[in-house]
Lab assay of single mutants.
Amino acid sequence: MSIQHFRVALIPFFAAFCLPVFAHPETLVKVKDAEDQLGARVGYIELDLNSGKILESFRPEERFPMMSTFKVLLCGAVLSRVDAGQEQLGRRIHYSQNDLVEYSPVTEKHLTDGMTVRELCSAAITMSDNTAANLLLTTIGGPKELTAFLHNMGDHVTRLDRWEPELNEAIPNDERDTTMPAAMATTLRKLLTGELLTLASRQQLIDWMEADKVAGPLLRSALPAGWFIADKSGAGERGSRGIIAALGPDGKPSRIVVIYTTGSQATMDERNRQIAEIGASLIKHW
């Protein structure tokens, strides 16, 4: 067993022997301040990774656009098919120029040779490549099948209805392509620590998230040296922004954090800054 596999296998073990965790309302004060600064709703939840206990939450059962955070769930569904012998990570998928959609920095470079399922998941999570996500959605049967996968996990809230990039439209009061912070946090925890996926697939999923290259201005910008984070960000229309993450000190994750916002007129930089400040408060009061 590799060191990384050992780390993920012992996530519940280490967490069980940690000192009790206590909620700190100071972080919620910052979440509410972010709402004021952005002029928009902000949803927040913080779960203990081992027990699933909610440590703090704000608007945990209000719907927010998922945006690209759905790509972690998508690759979880792909990995479940791999575990069941219905898919192979090494299978190569070929596609054409007509398949390319807006923001496809990886797939646009491989029109000639195609990409493997493993490479597509890596591109979808680490670079948020939209064509990679659409190609992977095709392998599982489309958005409705991802929703069905989530329902089978016990998540009857999260739903995907459309493809990239239309799913980022974020129309107010439109339930399409949305989740709730509580539902997303619980589902992410199941994917990373539950028995739904094999140990190898859980490790692969967290490795992809740990290698995320496009979430630097968010929670990662607030992390002290030595902290662990595996995350996936999302951005959408109407001032929408979000991030889902597993993080913790001492090089291992111990909490799940989900943050979503929508309806702001603020710039992307300002949305990023507010999420980073929430992260800084979380870490300060850990």
Rank of each mutant, 00 (worst) to 15 (best):
H24V: 09
T27C: 06
A34F: 11
A34T: 12
Q37G: 06
Q37D: 06
G39P: 04
G39E: 12
G39M: 14
R41K: 05
R41W: 05
R41N: 10
I45D: 00
D48A: 05
S51C: 05
G52L: 05
L55G: 14
F58M: 14
P60E: 07
R63Y: 15
F64E: 01
M66T: 08
S68V: 01
K71D: 00
L74A: 14
G76L: 05
L79A: 04
L79H: 02
L79M: 13
D83N: 06
L89A: 13
R91P: 01
S96L: 10
Q97Y: 11
L100C: 06
L100A: 05
V101N: 09
E102Y: 12
S104N: 15
P105D: 05
H110K: 09
T116V: 14
R118K: 14
E119D: 15
E119Y: 04
S122K: 10
S122C: 11
A124E: 01
A124S: 11
I125M: 07
I125W: 00
T126I: 07
M127L: 12
S128G: 03
D129Y: 00
N130L: 01
A132M: 03
A133W: 00
A133Q: 01
N134D: 08
N134C: 04
T139A: 14
T139C: 15
T139K: 14
G141M: 13
G142K: 04
K144Q: 08
E145W: 13
T147I: 07
L150I: 13
L150W: 12
H151Y: 09
N152Y: 12
M153R: 08
H156Q: 09
H156T: 12
H156K: 10
V157K: 10
V157T: 10
V157H: 14
T158S: 09
R159L: 08
W163Y: 13
E164G: 01
E164F: 01
P165I: 06
P165W: 04
P165N: 09
A170Y: 05
P172C: 10
N173L: 09
D174W: 02
R176P: 03
R176A: 07
D177G: 01
T178E: 03
M180W: 09
A182G: 12
A182M: 09
A183V: 12
M184K: 00
M184C: 05
A185N: 00
T186F: 15
T186E: 15
T186R: 10
K190D: 15
T193M: 12
G194C: 08
G194L: 10
L196N: 10
L196V: 11
L199F: 14
A200G: 13
A200Y: 09
R202Y: 06
R202Q: 15
Q203S: 06
I206K: 13
D207R: 10
E210T: 10
E210P: 01
A211V: 15
K213V: 06
A215D: 00
P217C: 14
P224Q: 15
W227L: 00
I229T: 03
A230C: 09
K232D: 00
S233D: 00
S233K: 02
G236K: 00
E237A: 12
R241V: 04
I243Q: 03
A245D: 00
A245Y: 01
A246D: 03
L247P: 02
G248R: 02
D250C: 08
D250V: 10
I256S: 02
I256P: 00
V257C: 07
I259E: 01
I259N: 02
S264P: 04
A266K: 06
T267K: 06
M268W: 12
D269I: 07
N272K: 03
R273E: 15
Q274M: 11
Q274A: 13
I275G: 02
A276L: 12
A276H: 12
I278P: 00
I278N: 01
G279P: 01
H285E: 07
H285R: 09
